[in-house]
């Protein structure tokens, strides 16, 4: 789960003003009419950190379990592509095609 600071894309020591600015920017990017879920996520993040008291509250009491995948993601940014050998590429293609066929078979 992303922290409210990450959702609004602000530093943890950002001021009230900077947070509000970031919030309004995000709302422009994800207006409620385009998707209520995204908007609510942004709104809820803003409410959690919009002023000093809320931010302290968040720091003292938030206890959501951190998500391992989110920690992992930046460390698994792809590097330079290594060419797979021909057999591996063909093998993976066959593997995927057979798997796909199996899915069609079980769905029909």
């Amino acid at each position: 789960m992303q922290t409210p600071f990450e959702i609004l894309d602000v530093d943890e020591d950002a001021s009230d003003e900077a947070i509000k600015k970031a919030y309004l920017k995000k709302v422009k990017e994800y207006p409620p009419e385009q998707g209520v879920e995204a908007f609510q996520r942004i709104r809820s993040a803003f409410e959690k950190i919009q002023n000093e008291k809320q931010r302290r509250n968040h720091r003292l009491f938030h206890h959501e379990k951190p998500e391992f995948d989110l920690l992992l993601q930046p460390s698994l940014r792809p590097g330079a592509i290594q060419r797979p050998d021909a057999d591996l590429l063909a093998g993976a293609l066959v593997e995927a095609a057979l798997e796909d066929m199996l899915k069609i078979q079980s769905s029909s």
């Binding site: 698994l76 792809p78 590097g79 592509i81 290594q82 060419r83 797979p84 591996l88 590429l89």
Partner: peptide, 8 residues
């Protein structure tokens, strides 16, 4: 394995 290669 292929993904590991392609992602370098």
């Amino acid at each position: 394995t292929l993904i590991h290669k392609i992602n370098g």
